[in-house]
Simulated assay, not measured.
Amino acid sequence: MQLLVDRMPSVDYDDRLHGEKFVITFSWGANSDPVPTQVVALYKYKGDVLVAGTRDKNWSSYEQAVEAGKEISDKFVAKYWQD
């Protein structure tokens, strides 16, 4: 019997440039795998939730997956905000 692992929660993140608020969430693989298979960065805009971006697994830990979500969020802001 496979052991189930606790899934880590979504992460609230304020981007580094403007403090825009994102939620970094995850897709998971096998029940015994503690590392997410995909990262999804969500952004709330005028009452709608937008997918700022996704990235498939190229990391080996939950912490690295969170960092990938932060990079997605930062790139989204850099692309769509004009300073």
Score class of each variant (00 low, 15 high):
residue 60 S to N: 13
residue 71 E to S: 11
residue 60 S to Q: 14
residue 56 D to C: 03
residue 74 D to Y: 10
residue 83 D to H: 04
residue 71 E to W: 02
residue 76 F to V: 00
residue 54 T to L: 05
residue 23 V to P: 01
residue 51 V to I: 11
residue 48 D to N: 07
residue 56 D to F: 06
residue 4 L to Q: 11
residue 33 D to F: 04
residue 59 W to A: 06
residue 35 V to A: 00
residue 37 T to C: 13
residue 12 D to L: 08
residue 33 D to W: 05
residue 63 E to D: 15
residue 39 V to H: 08
residue 23 V to Y: 05
residue 49 V to I: 14
residue 55 R to H: 05
residue 73 S to D: 08
residue 73 S to Y: 05
residue 13 Y to F: 14
residue 77 V to K: 00
residue 35 V to C: 10
residue 4 L to R: 08
residue 68 A to F: 03
residue 23 V to I: 11
residue 83 D to K: 10
residue 80 Y to L: 09
residue 41 A to Y: 03
residue 61 S to P: 09
residue 24 I to T: 07
residue 40 V to I: 15
residue 3 L to T: 04
residue 21 K to P: 00
residue 28 W to E: 08
residue 77 V to Q: 01
residue 4 L to C: 06
residue 72 I to W: 05
residue 46 K to P: 01
residue 68 A to M: 09
residue 31 N to H: 08
residue 47 G to L: 09
residue 40 V to W: 05
residue 80 Y to V: 09
residue 8 M to F: 15
residue 48 D to A: 06
residue 68 A to V: 14
residue 5 V to G: 05
residue 69 G to W: 10
residue 11 V to A: 10
residue 36 P to Y: 06
residue 35 V to G: 01
residue 23 V to T: 12
residue 28 W to M: 11
residue 69 G to H: 13
residue 14 D to Q: 09
residue 63 E to T: 13
residue 34 P to E: 03
residue 45 Y to S: 02
residue 74 D to T: 02
residue 41 A to V: 10
residue 9 P to L: 10
residue 35 V to L: 01
residue 26 F to Y: 01
residue 47 G to D: 06
residue 81 W to H: 09
residue 44 K to A: 07
residue 51 V to Y: 00
residue 65 A to R: 02
residue 40 V to C: 13
residue 44 K to P: 00
residue 71 E to D: 13
residue 5 V to H: 05
residue 56 D to Y: 07
residue 9 P to R: 04
residue 31 N to A: 15
residue 8 M to Y: 14
residue 18 H to D: 01
residue 69 G to C: 09
residue 12 D to F: 12
residue 6 D to R: 15
residue 29 G to W: 12
residue 81 W to N: 03
residue 36 P to W: 00
